[in-house]
Design a protein around this nucleic acid. Sequence first.
DNA 1: ACCTACCGGGG
DNA 2: GTGTACGGTAGGT
Length: 855
Amino acid sequence: MVEYAPTTPLESYDSLRVIIFSVTFYKGSLSRTFINSFLYLMLMEKIGFYLMDITYKIEENKPVLYLFGKTREGKQVCVLDRNVEPYFYVLLKDEDNIKNFIEKIVKIETEEKDRTAKVTRAEETEKKFLGKKRKAVKVYVQIPPDVPVIREIIKDWDMIETVLEYDIPFRRRYLLDKKITPMMLVEAEGEFINIRSKVPVLDAEKISTDEDSIKEPDIIGFDIETYNPEGKRFKPEEHPIIMLAFYGKDYKKIITWKRFKTEDKDIEFVDGEVDLLNRFKEVLKKEKPDILTGYNSDGFDLPYIITRARKYDIDMDIGLDYSTLKYRKGRSEQILITGIVHLDVFKFIKKSFGRSLETYSYSLDSVAAELLGEKKDDVDMDTLAGSWDSNKGLEVFCRYNLKDAMLAYKLCKEVLPNIEEFVKIIGLPIYDINRMGFSQMVEWYILKQAQEHGELAPNKPHHDDIKERMGKRYKGGFVFEPKPGLYSNIAVFDFRSLYPTIISSHNIGLSTLDCSCCRDSSEKVPGEDYWFCKKKKGFLPSLVNDLIERRARVKEILKEKEDRMLEARSNSLKVLANSFYGYLGFYAARWYCMECAKSVTAYGRYYINKVIKQAKKNGFDVIYSDTDSIFLALEDEKEEKAKNFVEKLNQDLPGIMELEYEQFYPSGIFVGVKQGAFGAKKKYALLSKEGSLKITGFETVRRNWSLVAKETQEKILNIILKEKDKEKAVNYARSVIRDIEEKKIENEKMIINTQLQKEVEEYASVAPHVEIAKRMKEKGVDVGPGSMIQFIVSNKQGIIREKARIPSEVEKGDYDAEYYIHNQVVPAVAKIFEVLGYDKEDLFEKDQSQLGDFF
DNA sequence: ACCTACCGGGG
DNA sequence: GTGTACGGTAGGT
């Protein structure tokens, strides 16, 4: 075997060409076989590369896998694997018929468009299906699209119980079967071949895997600015891209096509939009990033580029194999570049960080501010089109453009460890992980584990099943309605990963449900009529248990040292384990089990109620509880007593279930709740030991409230919880009301934002923001669905919509004080004061009485 | 109360 | 791509 350590694959490839010619020259005098094997050995090369992307093509009626990645030496490469055979499984009603069946199925041939689809071979295999040992038939075909074709022919055969695993995307099937994990090292041996490609191509004979994972992929962030004279409306067919920015580790560039004088070396001028689009291709071809990232680039930048390129008939062949940008419309659109990972950082953040983010909006500005501590450049986008027309002041927009590309780049770097951990746990490429929902991640994780356990995957539900499943509702977590009030020394406990630990401890899964072996002995699910096996650990619960244990080990190491990757791993494991419960009740799940999902919440309610009961019995004042947490007001009791209580409770909990002492809050306020259809709405604010305010359920976060209302509410919560001074809080509210009356508060704080949901003409009832939108239209501002309408309720006569005005048209102080006091500030704080024993009228009393008290 | 349509992000 | 895969909520009936 020739071990060749290439400096770069290309160089080694060239040098080997020379050898080929010399060997060919002597070919005549030696035996053909000898020469062939000699040639083969000489050409064999061994490379290691980190897998970044994978696709397949059909060549000569056979599938060929294209693996793209980066070599240890840091060069991009493409590796071909022809050693694959598409297949699916069949289960028979009578396993004694297998021989017969195989004889029959291998004869299948059917005419497709321009070829014949046929079964190449079939064999008997030992498998498991839903926990039971089964003999299955593995049926092989020539190319992946033949799988559904053959399945369609046989699926109604009488002898067949079910056809399985016929809808696994082929590139995923490949990764699964070869146990290849993206971003990890893959060793390939083969010969470099000469085909049209932007990177060297190795035709592999042999592929194996390695533990090592990619250190630092090359990332380029990008962003476009478009000509958009009509405000919120985007018209990619009409309006050109005027700027394009790239930002990488050692790369900065803004491309635009109106020249102006500048010292800025990062700005490159081209002659028009066509050139700009061509530069987009060239830069990528030259810089060769492993990852191209943007913010909402699936939904905006790349579709826009595709539309503009189509207009000029430019082939956007930026794939490493010169394939064009692929536009795929699913639930949400997504753009694929063969060989380059297109990572839409917005999609990932919205999905994975959504919950833990403070911000209500996922705009680049607020997300970057929270995650990076960095804001977008502050420019008025409404002036971009005008600036472009007059060619004045374009440079600030160029910087703005670059900053956006930079933020996308930095956000990508920030979240990549999290993506990477999902990639490694789930075993799918970055591109897929980026766009998958949690249920899909869970499903693929189970599928991967199933494969390793010899378990066959159940099929996806049929359309009718989905419909039926969607209609099913069941009880969720238990909510203990809070008694409104101000409390001090609040101790909070919660169950550590409640639902995952229930699944594991009570062995909840498809194969353990209502098992025959525990029919008489087993306890039943609280309030339900079914049970789960006590004797044999089920497949799903063992997977959940693995995830919990793996996470515990990671956390153990994290106690010793800080490590960004391990933190990400811990998080991914937690998220995945937590998603199992939702998955069990998810209508499109392969391993769907409504009884399981119901049992999880049933046990959850059972345990939290047990804790509540015990707490009361031990003399604690329970103020609130929701699903997995319980809040106790200790008042003058010691924290110690609560801690002891938790310890005692834990001794009675089964399996790995555990109640944790979560937090201690010096004070907190629970507010009267509006009664919804299902239990109570959570509305409370807590003050942490460190002095930060934790607000849940208040209107503060909603954008259709004026700033004056939001600020007043927050300030009042602060005074109450930090200073515990009710009088001061009331006085503060009074002072705000007075300031509004006396017009001391600036107009900006009175602006109310409401989004237009449809065309102005389509509204039957005219809300204030619709009225404003109408007026804007009359003035020539084109507003439509999605436009954010800002207005101030002015001092004019009439009903609210007649009083509403565009902010710029309102003179200073010319707002309706009555409206802002009674419809904004008071509603925002009334509930809080109610808890403290004040009613609305108290907020309007004159301050004089207070003054009087001083003297 | 229930069902359906649409938004989100992006200039 | 061997595909029937978002999730919340404003608006209508």
